[in-house]
């Protein structure tokens, strides 16, 4: 698993990275990598995710899952009931999609594993960009739905 191999390097570069450093050794020892059933594989992946992902990334993932759920609900509703008024559907749906994209960007920029690639962008800077982009998106959506 590449994240596992890469993780110690990122941890050594930035020793202050929270929580990921202690979780890394635990995952390797908790379960054998070879899994026989599909359920085992899923369980394995989930356990590793729970153990090795930093809390902020988990928060990001939760929010993204929430956005996917809201977006899917709107889309399904549109398919079943119809798209009148279309601009309302577009703005409601694009609000979730846009927010998802922005959150994904924030996740990429703040993930400790990508530290090497975003050396010049601090977490605070990335978060400020995220806030700015989100406000713009919300403004656009509210305006577009009229």
């Amino acid at each position: 698993m590449p994240p596992k191999n890469r993780h110690p390097t990122s941890a050594s570069v930035q020793p202050s990275a929270p929580k990921s450093t202690p979780s890394a050794p635990t995952t390797t020892s908790s379960k054998p990598l070879n899994a026989n059933t599909a359920q085992d594989i899923v369980q394995n992946v989930w356990d590793k995710y729970v153990q090795r992902t930093p809390q902020r990334v988990k928060l990001l993932d939760t929010f993204m899952a929430f956005l996917v759920a809201v977006g899917a609900l709107q889309f399904v509703y549109c398919v079943i009931v119809g798209n009148f008024p279309f601009n309302a559907f577009l703005s409601g749906f694009s609000a979730t999609v846009g927010q998802f994209v922005l959150t994904a960007s924030l996740r990429i920029q703040t993930n400790p594993e990508n530290k090497a690639e975003f050396e010049s962008i601090s977490n605070e800077r990335a978060f400020a960009d995220f806030i700015f982009g989100s406000l713009l998106l919300h403004f656009f959506c509210v305006n577009f739905i009229n």
Partner: peptide, 9 residues
Amino acid sequence: AAWVWIGGI
């Protein structure tokens, strides 16, 4: 009919 999507936003 737009209330659903207002809710979505």
